[in-house]
Write a protein that binds this DNA or RNA. Structure first.
Lengths: 240, 240
DNA sequence: GCCGTTTGACACATTTCGATACAATTTTCC
DNA sequence: GGAAAATTGTATCGAAATGTGTCAAACGGC
């Protein structure tokens, strides 16, 4: 929770929207307001929203519809507000991919706790940073220069990476020591869904290994997990 | 969700515990049962649990206490069951770090949806292990290098391990001098449930013995427990 | 010691992976 | 705008890893 998280509250009733925003602000969160789905979409475009609190029942575009849209196009977590304890709504909401829901009338303290819980979970997964400044990640005998899209060895030799190689390496470096399936890798690198017989990731891994491994036949950095995927098996340290 | 996820249901009331387990099993999940916190801790040690459904109110150790313990020592997601819609309980649970909660009496379909939602989140991108850095475990005449997935003998010779061999050895080294059944081994290594006539573990043990035992015919490290399973019969020491 | 069960060892089938070649696509350069 | 080059996806083959089946040996109860 580096800079205070940015919450977007979407509800058509001002009597709910505004006191809630104030309560959140008093507790260390930034709150943006939207009275309908259109306003919400605008706010999402113009601000770096970390989480959306979304009323299901709204005039115009439905909350569920907006939630579905969010889930399809972004990773931003969503907490649904539902008017009543209606099982159907709740189940549908969860199945659509909402991260949580709260029934009205709600206890603000509980909503805050849920927001924090969801943020904690969402943050443990490092979000792609729009941080435009160049970053430098050290791993094994290399330093990845994200600005120049190349790796520099301890001896100062720079090896350029293609875009696919660069993306794949970045994905690995942000999630070291974790087994990533081909599905996940494909999703994280190109946003694509895996085809049935998709070997493109294998190929990219192979190409990347040829560039970063000392002995590509016995890889030390990118390990194969038989039947599971690949894992980056070294420490990664950001350079100031 | 390759191997069906493994859910641990912890509740002191059999009338809740067992029907729930059956319902989960009917819907493609494996369910383990525990009637109290002690049983739960045992199950967590001996099975690869993916998620815990935990009653708050239990005789003996409290559900909240167990939840806190889980959050401190593992990443296993927790869904709390609370007897009534008591705001305090819910907030405390979420603040402790539960991933969700459901109030009794609950709708099984809703609980299932929540379980799937939490699993989906937990799986979408696994969290980095906080225990970063390769670990080195010494046993018998070998040192296991978890970074390189290989064992190094006293003479400095390195023997590479396959994925399955590495996982099996790791499972043994983390539970030395304990008899592990084939079921448990299969679960802990591949998350799979044992088939009726499953000899894959026997085979893996055999292969592993050929690599680590001085005399594979008279194994000194991995002992066979007739009718019970296998046991790792040597001391294991972590190397700095 | 006899007999049913369990385990070890081996051979074999199946799945998964690495490497290479080649086609399709995008980018670069003029 | 178009050709050449680089990049990326697809197909294929062989190798490696793993699971399954079989048989003989080991084990324990009786």
């Amino acid at each position: 929770m580096d800079p205070s998280p940015h919450i977007l509250v979407v509800d058509d009733e001002r009597e709910i929207r505004e006191p809630l925003a104030k309560y959140l602000a008093r507790n260390g969160l930034r709150a943006d307001l939207a009275a309908n789905a259109a306003e919400a979409r605008a706010a999402l475009k113009n601000s770096a929203i970390d989480l959306v609190v979304l009323d299901i029942m709204m005039p115009g575009e439905d909350g569920l519809s907006l939630c579905r849209h969010l889930r399809e196009t972004t990773d931003i977590p969503v907490i649904l507000l539902t008017a009543m304890a209606d099982d159907t709504d709740r189940v549908v909401g969860l199945e659509i991919g909402a991260d949580d829901y709260v029934t009205k009338p709600f206890n603000p303290r509980e909503l805050l706790a849920r927001i924090k819980a969801v943020l904690r979970r969402a943050q443990s997964v490092p979000r792609p940073r729009d941080d435009s400044g160049g970053e430098r990640l050290m791993f094994g005998p290399w330093v990845l220069d994200t600005d120049r899209q190349e790796i520099v060895g301890v001896d100062g030799v720079a090896v350029p990476l293609s875009t696919a190689e660069f993306r794949l390496l970045t994905v690995f470096l942000r999630r070291p020591r974790i087994v990533l399936s081909r599905d996940q890798l494909l999703d994280l690198t190109s946003g694509r869904a895996a085809d049935v017989f998709d070997r493109s990731i294998d190929n990219q891994v192979s190409r990347l290994r040829r560039k970063i491994e000392e002995d590509p036949k016995n890889p030390a950095l990118i390990k194969t997990v038989w039947g599971g995927g690949y894992m980056f098996a070294a420490d990664v340290e950001p350079l100031t």
